[in-house]
Design a protein around this nucleic acid. Structure first.
Lengths: 322, 322
DNA sequence: TTGGGATTGGCAAACGTTTTCCAATGGGTA
DNA sequence: TACCCATTGGAAAACGTTTGCCAATCCCAA
């Protein structure tokens, strides 16, 4: 194949244009005014030679990479691609690139990922921690080396974060369903080491202080959702509404209820992924774009230490809740 | 917050250990043998001071970044997160990082993404092109600057690629269904500007040369899949098997068939995403891990020009096909 | 004893850029 | 006319690393 051709350097542009390297740099970056005729000469040469600033050279000098690190707990969880997309969009608006690292739900991998990002000299890190407690060490370690903000999942309130309120949507769901006559609620939870899930479950528990509490735990998969529903319905056949900690569990619940001939039971999911829309599953949409924008601006401001933002979700009602 | 502390440089390690910079470098990278006692001194100093090699300095000198660019057409398409994951795993094994760029199904964005990756001096690029024809220009442009290989979707056979055979699974599906008594097949296609979809559709068409051909086009969404099913069933009520170009369409088809009271019709999807498993939808699993490994090794070998690999998929049969 | 080769430490030169100085020019004011 | 200041071009010094060269040392063989 071609074999990659040597890149054009700023020195060659300088020679070609008869200007000094410094002047060419200034003409191209606008870091200081240059005479109009000079500027044009520099730009023309650069264009003709096909010069593109070498980001490595620039980074070495400026000590900035214009790159953001984003650590997500599990890209296979369909919520996170949408977060990735949002962060990429928001980053592009600031002329930043995004280095994505997947923790594969493993705090060990997460720690390695953080170190790798720091080694790559990212300017800042956004992280959605994989584990409520086990992620802490790596995060505090990282904060010594790079500005960092928790996004979506937050495991430490004393550190910067940008989050969405997870309890209000649960309240809205329950009151909406009560208004429509549902009385016997159940909740299918994920492991409570997932920060957001923990908050969703807590919100549900608080709403149930005066009535029987029906909660079962599940793993993050549709199969697990089905098993959870079987358990719920056999223990409490009176159940008429099931709130799930995410969409995948919701899908499993929906399917198993149909199998059991209890399709009249209301079901809701969480995260409003494609699946929810595809199946008419009521779900909760997180404001990913706003989260991304807020997180990036947070992590770039100097007084970032003060940054704590909480945004609101929107409940999307669909057929699964009648 | 802390304000990021200045990083420890190799010079400080040299001073601390009483060795020269060159020797420290060699002791740490192993680029040339050093005496055992010297090596230990260097390593101890580095460890004590918390030295981490600055990748920018290294990259400037070596002209390598140990970073791979991965351009995907649409991260919201649930197949691609699994590809991303596979590429990340394979890259980690080679001590490479992955810079992910999402083309948002837009060749314009895709071109910008490629340029951005090249500006970031990635060592190589893997790309799953967003458009059968419109992606061409940006790709050939990029190949002049960086080794590149098409992964999964291939739009130009004359350029390096690592792909999965898309027609064989369709053949297997059809013959499996025929063996089980299905006779009247239909296909729900995606836009034929998607390379893999185009191949799936072509395979189906070839199988139908002796029998009526029933194909409708749809967009990549469950809603569109439902509409497609309505159209199919009203035109050809005899249909007893629907093959869909991806899982999302399959979900839509499944749902609409149930609505129409035609749940006995067999349905298959493609890509074997979480959704397929959740709903018991027969689907086709692509060998993402093998694709990733092959693509990376391809793009790193010098005689990459010769690289053309084709791997095989596996059909995963589930309830939706009886 | 001496010569030669292998081993290994260090100096200094890159890699490509931005930016700090300095100098030169020109214009405006006294 | 003389002086000062603002403007803008250029030389050179970083940024942190790897590596080509040279030199020193050591060991072995003749």
């Amino acid at each position: 194949m071609a074999g990659v051709p040597r890149r054009v350097t700023i020195r060659e542009v300088a020679v070609d244009s008869g200007l000094s390297i410094a002047t060419v740099s200034r003409a191209l970056t606008g870091s200081r005014p240059v005479g109009p005729e000079i500027a044009q000469r520099a730009q023309e040469s650069a264009a003709r030679l096909g010069y593109r600033t070498d980001s490595i050279g620039r980074s070495l000098r400026t000590q900035r990479t214009n790159t953001l690190g984003l650590v997500i707990p599990d890209i296979a969880n369909p919520f996170f691609p949408s977060l990735v997309q949002a962060v990429e969009r928001a980053a592009r608006d600031q002329n930043l690139s995004v280095l994505i690292a997947d923790a594969a739900n493993d705090p060990g991998v997460e720690q390695a990922a953080l170190r790798s990002l720091i080694d790559h000299r990212v300017d800042a890190v956004l992280i959605s921690p994989s584990h409520l407690t086990a992620s802490r060490a790596a995060i505090t370690e990282s904060m010594a080396a790079v500005p960092l903000v928790q996004i979506d999942r937050v495991i430490d309130n004393s550190l910067p974060y940008v989050r969405a309120n997870q309890s209000r949507p649960v309240q809205q769901l329950v009151s909406h369903l009560r208004a429509r006559g549902r009385r016997h609620f159940a909740f299918i939870a994920q492991p409570d080491t997932i920060a957001t899930s923990f908050e969703r479950e807590s919100a549900f528990r608080e709403l149930m202080t005066d009535v029987p509490l029906r909660v079962v735990s599940a793993e993050t998969s549709a199969g697990s959702g089905r098993g959870a529903v079987r358990e719920l319905m056999s223990r409490w056949p009176e159940i008429d509404a099931v709130i799930c900690a995410n969409d995948l569990l919701g899908v499993g619940a929906l399917r198993e209820l149909r199998t059991l001939g209890r399709a009249e039971v209301a079901v809701s999911g969480y995260d409003d992924t494609l699946i929810a829309e595809a199946l008419g599953l009521t779900s909760v949409r997180q404001p990913v774009d706003e989260l991304a924008v807020a997180a990036i601006s947070a992590v770039l401001t100097p007084d970032m230490a003060a940054t704590r933002r909480e945004l609101e979700c929107a409940v999307i009602f669909r057929e699964s809740t009648g």
